[in-house]
Nucleic acid binder design. Structure first.
Lengths: 141, 141
DNA sequence: TTGCAAAGTGTCAGAAAGTGTCATATAATG
DNA sequence: CATTATATGACACTTTCTGACACTTTGCAA
């Protein structure tokens, strides 16, 4: 179970530090995938296998299942932490998440997965979420 | 399991570099075939045997299965990586996939198989695939 | 047959990208 | 406050990519 919010930067080689609290669970390797709203997700090996097996069992003759398979697998990458607890983010995922070299990055624990955000995007998302929350309360009240 | 998305170009002799992460599994030889949606597929020897057996067992009386079988077998070529990790794409498969000499090529891991795309085509396919993927997740969430 | 052109294959070197390690700075903990 | 752990930048090292070029093979035609 991953919890919390952490600020880091992407180093000049495209690496991001994973908060030390998260490292133990990722020791056996992890998979980075595209998440919703332009974030990246880090899954444990175990978690990934569950997700991908669902996908692999879909019939390849159907168009939507082909699409799903392609999106999931092409957007994923098998990885592991280096000795300094960092993870390498490949070019295509950097583009997807809009995180460039030396950018500020926010790493959040989100239950079973870890999410990686461009801090710029994260702030906006959070702002929107807060607004929505405020509105709900106004309506209620 | 093949994962990820990689940009390359087809060299002036019709060869494409296979990303280093994929090479180990292809060391024993591989088969290149026509895939659906104008991509090319690379299968491991083992995978090819399984696929082709499935195909051979389809009833030859049905038109679509005959078509599939012809496309699969006539378009297939037994190949191997050269010492630089490249693979030669024969003329008929280049035409099929719309990849010309010196074109940009995207190589994607798609679970059990590798797919090779003209980057132009891939961008469109990827867009569709990402949409389908986002929809599924929205519904799930 | 012989020569020529087209296509395929092998090898190499420079450039680019990725990886590992260390030292210092910063933060967390008792 | 002292001690430990963590984060970050710097740098060296390794791997991979790419383009170039030469060699081999094939098919065709003189």
């Amino acid at each position: 179970m991953f919890l919390g919010e952490f600020r880091h930067t992407m180093d000049s080689k495209g690496r991001v530090v994973i908060p030390s609290k998260f490292r133990k669970e990722l020791q056996q390797g992890c998979v980075v995938t595209k998440g919703l709203d332009n974030c990246l997700q880090i899954l444990t090996k175990k978690n990934w296998i569950e997700e991908s097996e669902k996908m692999a069992s879909l019939p390849p003759t159907e168009k939507t299942s082909r699409q799903l398979r392609r999106a999931l697998f092409s957007g994923a990458i098998d990885s592991k932490l280096d000795t300094a607890g960092r993870i390498q983010i490949p070019e295509n995922l950097r583009q997807y998440s809009d995180i460039n070299i030396n950018d500020d990055v926010t790493v959040t624990g989100s239950g079973p997965v870890i999410e990686i955000w461009s801090t710029k995007v994260w702030k906006k998302i959070q702002n929107d979420a807060d607004k929505a929350f405020a509105n709900i309360n106004e309506v209620k009240g």
